[in-house]
Amino acid sequence: MKWGMVIDLQKCTGCGECAAACKLENNVAIVAHKESEMGRTMLWMDMLTIYEGEYPRLRVRQIPRPCMHCDHPPCTKVCPVRATYINEEGIVAQIYPQCIGCRYCMAACPYTVKSFNWYKPSFPPGMARTTNPDVSVRPVGVVEKCTFCIHRLQIAREQAKSEARDLRENDYQPACGASCPTGAIVFGDLENANHQVNRLAHNPRATKLLEDLGTEPKVIYLKEVD
């Protein structure tokens, strides 16, 4: 079992629904404007801005960018306390109570997917009580990142077991995939031939970010057709 994601850029409109859903689902702290300008914005699912062509034929696109959950993750290799590691199912997990906040992993990640909690997490008035109880609110001084909504896997697996059946494809979907209005984000088991993600990963349009680094990302993009 190897969890992975396919993002079809032909279908993606860059609306940012996935980023908003992720932020709410995972209790990602909201950083004030001043701190945000210092590069301390916290986003697990970021929207990369890509500029194509030149004026007057300039085209700007937004591309969703979660954690790549690499098969050879550079972040886990530099963590001195094993707070980040890759598990048997290919998820690069982040264990917050173990993290000492050295930020080596942030420096090592070529995709810059990790965020550091510079401040005690704060939410606007009224929002503090709407945090998702299935996900912890991270304390100050630890690094956090996309976990492929692993809490949903924990819950889905328990539900499947209580019904004495195997985990189905739709049982476990991260918030970004579940919220995507155009169905551009597909999630599933890359090793299971019955999962849609397996078929899409072998599509000729499939590409990976910074593929030449050898990190073997498990987030696969499907290029646009011109």
Binding site: N87, A93, I95, Y96, H151
Partner: peptide, 8 residues
């Protein structure tokens, strides 16, 4: 006993 089985 995988950490991510319980930690979230």
């Amino acid at each position: 006993t995988d950490c991510a089985t319980c930690h979230r």
